[in-house]
Amino acid sequence: MVNLNYSTSNPVFSGYIWKYKRSSASKMTLNGVILKSLFSIFLVGLTTWYVWDLVNKGIDVQYYTYGGMIAAVIFSILTSYKKKWSPITTPLYALSKGLFLGGISAYAEAKFEGMPMRAVSVTLLTFLIMLLLYKAEIVVVTKRFRSVIITAIITIMTIYIINWILNLFGINLPYIYGTSWFAIGFNIIATIVASFSLLLDFDFIDRKLGKAPKFYEWVATWGLLVTLIWLYVEVLRLMKKLAIRF
């Protein structure tokens, strides 16, 4: 059986983020989460297409890419600490993240034609598989399972942060971003961890349905976007490494 009190691998769904006061107001529903998630994904696609179109016109989108990434971080922080703002900050996060994804996806398309669409297909297929595994209870979210995924998430993110800091000083880690077998193996592990973190998110959201306030549907949407976009980036990165390697 799954313990009722726990935190998920996605910090979006941690106990702090989901702390709320019980009331008789409208509650979070599955349909609400689905509709808001679809709308937010549409917003991501909208700004992704916009930046991609700029690239096709020969316009430098570097500022769009980095600006979108920074804005996404800011809106994530705001959503974390001001959950009631989530109906505004989550769509803004989606738009900002789309700018970032548009830049990296257009770059990948220029180097490897058709790769971004294949990465999107793999991401959506993975999402559906994870949802099926969760609903069919083929994979049960146990305390040990949570601990393993959470530990893996922290380790991977710590490595990425250290690498980012080193890059500021002109130091690169070829064992992370290169095309060596070690780098490819690391990317495969990161992709698997991102995939399985969806199971924890599904489980946590499922237990909050009918309990959390209505605006938490936007918080849930934000959480799923964080995981899905992370998964897409890992899949795209893995595909690029394999294409270069082979």
Rank of each mutant, 00 (worst) to 15 (best):
V55W: 02
V120A: 06
W181S: 09
I159R: 01
D60E: 15
V233T: 15
V51I: 11
Q62E: 10
D201K: 05
A71R: 03
F186P: 05
L38S: 05
I34A: 06
V2F: 02
K83N: 03
I188Q: 09
I165V: 14
W181G: 14
I184N: 01
F186D: 01
G185T: 13
L128A: 06
I138G: 06
G98C: 13
T227Y: 07
K111I: 12
L228Q: 06
E113V: 14
G185R: 09
G98Y: 10
I149R: 08
N187Y: 04
G103R: 00
K135M: 00
I192G: 13
S86R: 01
F204W: 11
T126P: 11
I162H: 11
V122P: 09
V55R: 00
K36Q: 12
A190H: 07
T126D: 15
I149W: 08
V33D: 10
W222L: 02
P174Q: 12
F246M: 04
R207T: 11
F100Q: 14
I188T: 07
R245D: 15
S40C: 14
K241E: 04
S147T: 08
N172C: 07
T90Q: 13
K21Q: 07
F215M: 08
Y63Q: 12
V12L: 01
V193G: 07
R245A: 14
G114N: 05
W222V: 00
T79Q: 04
G223L: 02
E217F: 08
I153D: 12
F39N: 01
T65M: 14
L168S: 11
L124D: 12
I162S: 13
D203F: 02
K36Y: 08
T221W: 06
Y175N: 07
K208W: 12
L38C: 06
G223K: 00
T79P: 00
V120S: 04
F42G: 13
P116A: 04
M117Q: 13
L35T: 08
I150S: 12
Y50Q: 10
I129A: 02
L54F: 13
V235N: 15
M69T: 08
K83I: 02
S86F: 07
M157C: 05
L131M: 09
E109F: 15
